[in-house]
Design a protein around this nucleic acid. Structure first.
Lengths: 162, 162
DNA sequence: TTTATAGTTGGTTGTACCAACCAAAGGAGT
DNA sequence: ACTCCTTTGGTTGGTACAACCAACTATAAA
């Protein structure tokens, strides 16, 4: 039980609190009817990541392909994304955000940024920046570790958690 | 559009990513069958917060009372929490974690801390501490802002809330 | 031809909401 | 003091949404 582990233990509390917000408070606080909350993330990924295949989207978000499929269906129906067949592989469709999709997302992001800015009105700007960096790194490492755990909890770990 | 707002806009990405983990990767990565993920949070609150009333728990977690009610039922059934009638008000029951509840939670927390420690093995310890502080503050302010938004989005926005 | 991959659809589960309800408290009016 | 009426704590029923897995079709690749 190193001090590093202890420090991580301390991190658990706030992390749980934050993750707990999903589905509840935050969601309700800044939700629109136009964009089913989970769809927002997908749309954002398409806007920022450019044209992608559905399976890549699923992989990035670490969710089942079926989830992405349904979300895409919804987004497409609302005209926020469009698909075209991949000329190189007729199994895949390439997804892309429409102009309207970009626009809607931009609006939502602006709203959220405002809301967040209000919520953090007492914060030092430097702290916001610092937190952003740390969270980015955290997400990245959590993602990697999740994949590791999910794919091979068998023998990929060298000596022995479990 | 101040730079503060912009900085918050930058924060949105990582934040979304992180919140997206809920229900998916993280959940699966460190989940046990003994404790329904959402129950963990409740149990943690009981362990750390001491004997509480159900309505206070609901308020703290910003969820509907019915949600807490069902979760408590489950936890109680597994012998992780117990309730006793409040002598001062016969409507309320006071909830408390059982010894076994404490034990189970402690195990889970240790597991998680280990997992997290592994995930963040390349991190500077100081950064972990810093992130913990920032996340704590973030949770706190997000919570406050959510409540504000939820309770009175009508006309309470500009000057004095309520 | 056989096997693997991309995507969709059906069925199930977990977690949340709201509405409706019961039981107990707390005030107000007589 | 006694009864009404409103408020509050908690439970239960019904519904929505997002995730999963399994089964299926169509296409590629070996």
């Amino acid at each position: 039980m190193t001090t590093h582990t202890e420090a991580c233990g301390q991190l658990l509390g706030p992390l749980r609190t934050l993750l707990g917000f999903r589905q509840t408070a935050l969601q309700r606080a800044y939700q629109s009817k136009e964009l089913s909350t989970s769809g927002t993330g997908l749309l954002a990924e398409l806007v920022h990541g450019g044209e992608s295949r559905a399976c890549d989207l699923a992989h990035n978000r670490v969710v089942d392909a079926s989830v992405v499929s349904r979300q895409l269906g919804q987004l497409e129906q609302e005209g926020l994304v469009e698909r075209r067949p991949d000329p190189a592989d007729r199994r895949v469709s390439l997804l892309r955000a429409t102009e309207r999709g970009r626009q809607v997302l931009a609006e939502r992001e602006a709203q959220k940024a405002n809301w967040l800015s209000h919520a953090l009105r007492d914060w030092d700007e430097a702290d916001v920046v610092r937190l952003t960096e740390l969270l980015r790194a955290l997400s990245c490492d959590l993602l990697a570790a999740s994949r590791e755990t999910l794919s091979g909890p068998a023998e990929t770990t060298e000596e022995g958690n479990r």
